[in-house]
Amino acid sequence: MSESAAHPREVLLGAQAGGVVLPVCDHYSGVEARMRKSLALQAEMAQEFGACVFDVTLDCEDGAPVGGEAEHAALVTELALAAAPGMRVGVRVHPVDHPAFAGDVVTIAGRAGHRLSHLMVPKVESAADVREAVQALNAAGAEALPLHVLIESPFAVHQAFEIASHPRVQSLSFGLMDFVSAHGGAIPAEGMGAAGQFTHPLVVRAKLEIASAAHAHGKVPSHCVVTEFNDVDAMRGAAKKAAREFGYTRMWSIHPNQIRPILEAFAPDERQIQMATKIIASAAAADWAPVSFDGTLHDRASYRHFWHVLSRAHATGRALPPEAQAWFAAASS
């Protein structure tokens, strides 16, 4: 196939063309009633947007009552298996050094691994923890299940590049609350807030290290929570900063009120979508040679950027011009 006839994704991303594009929002819930509501909302919004626009991650680490870990693992397994077709459902298990970890993996990955979009492992400190998790998944028969990992300590931040290099790791998340707590009071409580987490130097440094490590290895950096879940303006502001200034392409939600602000903040606007469509269309018409657009020279480096803009628009359910719709219809066919 000539380049002029090839799909833009194949031309511009090459060997990366098969890489996964994750929804920009990862919604967490661990109480049974909230987990069921989250799954119902996911299916409703998929109907609204025409795509599954956020992941639901069912939580064992914070959701399971002490002493009831096995029962909670069985519950989230049944919920995952009963999710609507086409919906992306993951599970956060206990850390690898927790007594419940092995049982979580056997029950959840062993029974529902084929149905899960990912398994989130919290409190990952090193690549050794990743290897231990992978061995447990493989032993449970979930060899293809991607790992998402949660980096929550200063030491883990130092190991972020090595952690991100493991081929089973698909996404790195930043655990803000535990990271701040790990500093023994050296970071004030404001460092956990919607505003303070973007100004304290140690927190800012950790966020940038994790984002950089993820991008260096082609993984997805996922931004931490905003605990002021009833403050939509705070949520919207934090999401915009994460997406536009800190290099994150995904963000956690811990309340249904946070999902739409995350989608809005991480989605390209109408002007960006129109520009990206015109530039990619011009590039394809020129057989991917450099083109001039509104007095600016563009080549394959900028073409890749604008293709990512369109991919993000598609993943967030934004309306696309007819030309772009055709590209994504072809990509999924």
Rank of each mutant, 00 (worst) to 15 (best):
E10N: 08
G14N: 14
G19A: 15
V21N: 15
G30R: 00
Q47M: 06
G50N: 07
A51S: 14
G63I: 01
P65T: 10
V66A: 14
A73C: 15
L75K: 06
L81T: 12
A82K: 08
A83F: 09
A83P: 01
F101Q: 05
A109E: 03
R111H: 14
A112R: 01
H114W: 12
L116G: 06
S117P: 06
L119G: 05
L119N: 00
M120K: 08
V124C: 00
E143H: 13
L145R: 01
H148V: 15
V149A: 00
V157Y: 05
H158D: 12
A160M: 03
E162W: 05
Q170V: 04
D178C: 04
A186I: 08
K207I: 09
H217D: 07
K219Y: 02
K240W: 12
A242W: 00
R244L: 10
R244K: 15
P256H: 05
I259W: 05
A265F: 09
F266C: 07
A267Q: 05
Q272Y: 05
Q274S: 13
M275H: 13
K278V: 15
S282F: 10
A284T: 15
A286T: 08
R304I: 15
H305C: 05
S311C: 14
H314R: 12
T316V: 09
G317F: 09
R318M: 12
A319T: 11
